[in-house]
């Protein structure tokens, strides 16, 4: 089955415009332009003496234990990437951490509740491209959970 000139012309035009959008996205746009944004996963050049940051949330529970909050959908309902993308906002307004506690409590009603949350940044130092020593930790934000 062959296409008519209009059907063929339209299709080729759509394909060419699509390729144009993809190239434009890769050359100048950001992730905001999804699905035509740049394919920037793991695209950065990390220097050999880089400090590698890893953000996590530590929780004190009503059972008196200190635990790392599982940052995924099944855990507290929020992914680590989301927390990392919004670290600046959370530092400015630690009340954003409330929803992490709420998410955990809703998904795990039978487990100890979080009473205090700390947003912590672990930093690993690279020396000549190799990991040097254990990471150092810094508390970025603290939030007393509202019951």
């Amino acid at each position: 089955m062959r296409l008519g000139p209009v059907g063929k012309g339209l299709r080729v035009l759509v394909a060419v415009v699509g390729i144009g959008l993809l190239i434009n996205g890769s050359v100048r746009a950001s992730d905001d332009a999804w699905p035509f944004g740049p394919m920037s996963q793991y695209a950065m050049s990390v220097p050999d003496d880089a400090k590698i940051d890893y953000t996590r949330i530590s929780a004190v529970t009503d059972a008196g234990t200190t635990v790392d909050v599982p940052l995924n959908i099944e855990g507290a309902g929020v992914a680590r990437a989301e927390i990392e993308a919004r670290t600046g906002e959370i530092v400015k307004d630690p009340s954003l951490l409330q929803q992490v506690a709420d998410g955990w409590a809703r998904k795990h009603p039978d487990k100890p509740k979080y009473v205090k949350l700390e947003l912590i940044r672990d930093t690993t130092q690279l020396v000549k491209g190799r990991v040097e020593g254990p990471p150092t930790s810094q508390v970025l934000a603290t939030w007393e959970v509202r019951p």
Partner: peptide
């Protein structure tokens, strides 16, 4: 386009393959 993004993030230079990106990951 992934390879293009790797060049772009380095200011259009080929530094990515010699960098510590996988170690970082």
């Amino acid at each position: 386009l992934s390879s293009v993004a790797k060049l772009r993030s380095a200011g259009w230079a080929l530094t990515w393959p010699g960098s510590a990106v996988l170690t970082w990951a």
